[in-house]
């Protein structure tokens, strides 16, 4: 379990990194925290011939609120920085981010793993991807052709596939508005494992009443997905139970050794309900 040989390049700035990526083409891979990539390289499931390390780009390791009240998270912000929120920028509006961090692996993974790395890796069960889809995040990517903003709905394209071009670097993730009534929950057989199913909701609550909301799932398709059928139930004033049932009926999760399609649908039912209850009680 030793990685195949590669050449190591340390990026000094984002533009330099992206130029190098353009030069090296398909043989290169960006490494940030490396918490998924290095494991895959140790198994030789990934074998880039060039590794472009952007870990030193400290300007991407910052998290702040913008003038509109949105949250801007630099791509190299670690899960642990979000969890501990040293600058106190999350507030009640983004408490869901802090709480979600406890579902990501374990402490020594969260100290190295980065928000941007997780998003760019695009695992179908990854908590960050699910949060992005639920909260309508926007992805700021920079490449040789300049900077562009990709909405979450267009970012995750399938299993470990995103809309990032090979020479683009994800620099920032923007959560445009506070989500005080959002929650994410999941189920795995063992603490810290990838979820069998992860569920997240972001409820619109007015005067203590749920008027609608966004409902999303991880682990039921090739990427995190919104579930409009379940959202319609919320808009129509339906119960959490009904919302959860609608979600369970709407999806057709793939079966594997950890669970059948039927079981995963049942987990969807349980987890959406739990997420709704947790979100509304915030």
């Amino acid at each position: 379990m030793k990685p195949a040989p590669f050449q190591y390049h340390r990026a000094r700035d984002v533009d330099g990194a992206s130029r190098l990526l353009a030069e090296l083409g398909d043989d290169a891979k960006v490494i940030a925290g490396g918490q998924s990539l290095v494991a895959m390289m140790n198994y030789r499931l990934a074998r880039p011939r060039h590794l472009v390390d952007i870990g030193g780009l400290r300007e991407l390791d910052r998290m702040h609120r913008d003038a509109e009240g949105g949250l801007r998270v630099g791509a190299l912000t670690t899960h642990h920085t979000v969890e501990s929120d040293p600058a106190g920028v999350l507030g009640a509006g983004f408490e869901v981010l802090r709480k979600t961090m406890t579902w990501i692996g374990h402490l020594p993974i969260r100290t190295r793993g980065t928000v941007g790395g997780s998003m760019a890796h695009g695992d179908a069960t990854a908590e960050w991807c699910l949060l992005a889809v639920t909260l309508g995040a926007e992805f700021v990517a920079r490449g040789p052709r300049g900077e562009r903003v990709i909405p979450a709905g267009d970012f995750f394209l399938g299993y470990y596939t995103t809309a990032l071009d090979p020479d683009e670097i994800l620099v920032e993730i923007v959560f445009p508005r506070p989500a005080p009534h959002a929650a994410l929950t999941e189920f795995a057989e063992r603490r810290g494992d990838f979820a069998l199913v992860a569920a997240a909701v972001d409820l619109d609550v007015e005067d203590g009443e749920v008027r609608g909301g966004r409902v999303a799932l991880g682990g039921v398709a090739s990427a995190a997905v919104r579930v409009p059928e379940a959202e319609r139930v919320l808009t129509a004033g339906g119960s959490f139970e009904a919302c959860a049932s609608a979600a369970a009926e709407a999806v057709e999760p793939p079966a594997d050794a950890s669970g059948s399609t039927h079981y995963r649908k049942e987990l969807v039912r349980t987890l959406i309900r739990r997420a709704c209850e947790e979100a509304v009680s915030r």
Binding site: G34, N42, L107, P108
Partner: peptide
């Protein structure tokens, strides 16, 4: 592959997996 933690060391005082870092 980063799960057992036998290789845990501190990097800038934070625990990390030394097998998941070059």
């Amino acid at each position: 592959h980063g799960i057992c933690g036998a290789c845990t060391v501190l990097v800038d005082e934070r625990p990390v997996r030394a097998c998941l870092m070059f």
